[in-house]
Amino acid sequence: MDLLHVENLIKDYVSPDGEVQRVLEIANFSLAAGEQVALRGSSGSGKTTFLHIVAGILAADRGSVRFDGEEIVDLNESQRDQYRARELGYVFQSFHLLGAYSALENVIFGGAFGSGGDPAFAEDLLVTLGLEHRLKHRPHQLSIGQQQRVALARALAGRPRMVLADEPTGNLDPTAAVEALELLRGLCRNQGAALLLVSHDPAVLGAFDRQEDFAVLNQASRGVTP
């Protein structure tokens, strides 16, 4: 059984002048538990919107997004918050770490709203990622690579069943990008979490057995409009 199954998903935006613009139209997409999939797509192709809908941050206009058999589209906002807190980890392109909090606190927040943050587990994750001496450092006191590792740890801190990663290596140099990708994939593998990653970097995409071209997946980006 699929962990994530998307069917006939549609999302439209209404521009300021009232014009309806379809940004997402996905007929079918699925992800098995523990599977790692990379979506290839250029900027503005709607892949971030797709991840936001899968994460419950945005509501779909039509279609179906089922997670472990449960229909996400039918959930109200509060239920989607809970779903996101319990089931998902999210790695943002620009990390989106909380500047007022230490590295450890940032990671703890990753699990705080779901099953409850586990400081010991959060610390273990940071130690695993080589940040044992940076636990109390704030994001601005960390290098870009270290910030990225904190973001990875935060995504895994709630023991999610699926991790969404939006251009997670976009701000890293090629060497650091490969290293971060390996860490992310390794952590997901170790926790049995599925990984849905979006990138336009061939080096990143090449590491995945299963790649999907988002431009093909998203019919809206191919000019199919309502």
Binding site: R84, A85, H96, A100, A112, F113, G158
Partner: peptide, 16 residues
């Protein structure tokens, strides 16, 4: 606002 958006993305509810 950014802090609240991040917390919401991590699963914090509006009421939180």
């Amino acid at each position: 606002r950014r802090e609240f958006a991040i917390l919401r993305a991590l699963g914090a509810r509006r009421r939180t």
